[in-house]
Amino acid sequence: MLLISATPSPFARKVRISMIEKGISFTVQNEVPWHADTKTKLYNPLEQLPILIPDDGDPVFESTYLMEWLEHKYPQPSMLPADPALAMEAKLVHTIAEGVADATVLLFWEMQREHISAEWAKRQLRKVKGGLTDLNRRVGDREFVVGDRFGLADIAVIALLGMQDTVVESQMIPTWQQYAPDMDAWTVLYPNLKRFVAHHQNRPSVKETAPFMFDLAEKIV
């Protein structure tokens, strides 16, 4: 099974973590979806990552759908709590993390523009801060975000915070502060999230999927 991925992407990382947790054997092929040599358009009409190519089926894409597909095809161990109410709570945490990741991507693209829209940047930064603040509250002092074992909610939060590490390492925070002076590195603003990640950082699936930025050899489009 082949997973076409991107090393800094939280969307791809959560799929990788889930597959490792489920013991699924797969190979990773890293791509930049706007580079000329990308194969994404051959497998996903939306030309987005991640894309999973099963050994005996059609390509599967879009990270949220992919997580559901993995639960359907490889139900054990489940990444969702058995209790329906807790399962819905885990999906809500996943949705919040996705929203923050989407807003972070939109900020990245906006910052590439010659004329940045301050209103747009401020709106996306409100989403980032609002989502992280809510996740910090939900995590509290828990070992796991939802329930009593590692699962979807934990994966979503860890993947998102790896993305926020990339934001810090890429020195984007000073630019963000031009539009939201109260923004800072997530490790400064969200102690519960910082403790949570530190607790899980040596988990094999987390350690093996640590994000790192790739070379953007071609124009960002």
Score class of each variant (00 low, 15 high):
L2H: 13
L2V: 07
S5E: 05
A6M: 08
A6V: 03
P8Y: 07
R13H: 13
R13E: 04
K14S: 01
V15K: 00
R16H: 12
I17F: 04
F26N: 04
V32K: 02
P33V: 10
P33L: 08
H35G: 05
H35M: 13
A36T: 14
T40P: 01
T40E: 01
L42I: 09
Y43M: 12
P45M: 14
P45H: 10
E47V: 14
E47K: 14
Q48D: 04
Q48M: 14
P50E: 05
L52T: 00
P54Q: 09
P54A: 12
P54D: 11
D55G: 09
D56E: 10
V60L: 09
S63H: 05
Y65P: 00
Y65D: 15
E68Y: 05
E68F: 05
W69V: 10
L70T: 02
L70K: 00
E71C: 07
Y74R: 05
D83N: 10
D83H: 14
L86W: 02
M88D: 09
E89H: 10
L92A: 15
T95Y: 12
I96H: 00
A97M: 04
A97S: 08
A97C: 03
T104A: 13
L107R: 00
F108N: 05
W109C: 06
M111D: 15
E114T: 12
E119C: 04
W120S: 03
K122E: 14
R123Q: 12
Q124N: 14
L125I: 11
K127H: 09
R138G: 04
E143G: 04
E143I: 07
E143W: 03
G147I: 03
D148R: 15
L152S: 04
A153Y: 01
D154C: 08
V157I: 07
I158V: 15
I158A: 05
G162Q: 07
G162K: 00
D165F: 08
E169M: 10
S170G: 07
Q171L: 05
P174S: 15
P174T: 13
T175M: 12
T175I: 15
W176R: 03
Q178L: 08
P181G: 13
M183A: 14
D184Y: 07
W186V: 05
T187D: 12
T187Q: 12
L189C: 08
P191S: 12
L193D: 00
K194S: 08
F196G: 00
A198H: 13
A198L: 14
A198Q: 13
H199P: 00
Q201V: 11
P204W: 14
S205V: 06
V206F: 06
V206S: 04
E208K: 15
T209I: 14
F214I: 13
F214P: 04
L216D: 05
L216E: 12
L216M: 12
A217N: 15
A217T: 10
I220Q: 09
